[in-house]
């Protein structure tokens, strides 16, 4: 196997004397169109270090990877878990306490180990031409509208939707899902399949984020899409970063988290991750057209962890028939 040594050479950071900060994150964060490159460049200008992203598939994959590697992980920072995974991540005992950074989330969020770096409201995205968009889950269930959603067992937005219904309806969640069953065209394993189906016209609405229309408006100059405002409130996804206890470069990790909370990094977020920044950073033109939910729903990490299994089972029981 002749290519092995060559690959090993390529994978070894060339600048051995400069400290390397390893950031374990999800794939799309590190993509050339994602927030990763700009944030790495900005931080490297301040730290005399090199940022190396280790890319795992998605939030769930980051957590599995940490569990697999345990304290042997070479990662200094893990970035990209969301609130539904935070409690499970905390339970690994791999994360260190961090200095609290202020944030401007619409609901209070304070955690000793995890720092939010962006957030968004889940919402059903539809074409502006859709007549009488529903104003809540019950109106949606009563309508003939067709929706595509994601599977909560394999996708974080899918899990977010299950938590949304649970947070809004509590014990009634099961019956809400039963009523929604005939509106659901299909359930996809990930966000991208569902969004692709919606763009192809397979459904009237897709579960995504209130910020999704901003992508089409800003990147594609297409203002035909919007999101439906639900009066039960909108469930939030909060994405967080944390420092590993076994971080080889703990000071660099602290510095990186501080940089991540600063205006420079935060202003990269809206047009790369298409989410809201966690600190008050200027929003790009186009974001002012997005719907602004009056009420935000978010279960605390402990509540979310306690409810997750039961909420998924309710969802499954209501839809599997």
């Amino acid at each position: 196997m002749k290519i092995l040594p060559a690959l090993a050479f390529l994978a070894t950071p060339a600048l051995a004397e400069v400290p390397v900060l390893n950031v374990l994150t999800y794939d799309s964060f590190t993509a050339e169109w994602g927030p990763g490159p700009a944030i790495a460049k900005g931080f490297e200008a301040t730290c005399a270090c090199k940022v190396n992203y280790i890319a795992a598939g998605d939030g769930g994959a980051i957590l599995s990877r940490l569990k697999m590697e345990g304290a042997g992980s070479e990662a200094d920072v893990a970035l990209g878990l969301d609130t539904s995974l935070v409690e499970a991540a905390r339970a690994t005992g791999l994360f260190a306490p961090i200095a609290a950074q202020p944030n401007t989330l619409p609901v209070p969020f304070a955690d000793t180990e995890f720092q939010p770096y962006d957030w968004g409201w889940f919402a059903f995205v539809h074409l502006k031409s859709l007549e009488n968009p529903p104003a809540n889950f019950k109106a949606l269930a009563a309508s003939d509208l067709k929706i595509v959603i994601q599977d909560p067992r394999s996708s974080t937005p899918g899990l977010g939707l299950v938590m949304w219904v649970k947070a809004a309806y509590g014990d009634e969640a099961g019956s809400v899902w039963k009523d929604l069953a005939d509106n659901i065209v299909t359930v996809t394993p990930g966000w991208d399949e569902a969004y692709g189906l919606f763009l192809k016209g397979e459904a009237d609405m897709v579960l995504s984020y209130t910020t999704s229309p901003a992508y089409h408006l800003i990147a594609e100059n297409d203002d035909t899409k919007t999101a439906a405002l639900f009066d039960e409130g909108h469930y939030m996804q909060v994405e967080v970063a944390g420092k590993l206890k076994a971080a080889p470069n703990p000071e660099l990790a602290d510095a990186f988290l501080a940089y991540l909370a600063g205006t420079e990094a935060q202003s990269v977020i809206p047009t790369t991750n298409w989410m809201y920044p966690a600190q008050s950073a200027p929003l790009p033109q186009g974001f002012e057209t997005l719907i602004q939910p009056a009420k935000s729903l978010l279960l605390s990490p402990t509540e979310a962890e306690a409810l997750r299994q039961k909420a998924i089972e309710e969802w499954q029981a209501a839809l599997a028939q």
Binding site: R153, T186, V187, A320
Partner: peptide, 17 residues
């Protein structure tokens, strides 16, 4: 999963995932 229309169309491979 994508064409099956709902969680009734769960395969062992999804459970593994």
């Amino acid at each position: 999963l994508t064409l099956g229309g709902g969680p009734g169309a769960t395969t062992v491979e999804l459970a593994i995932y």
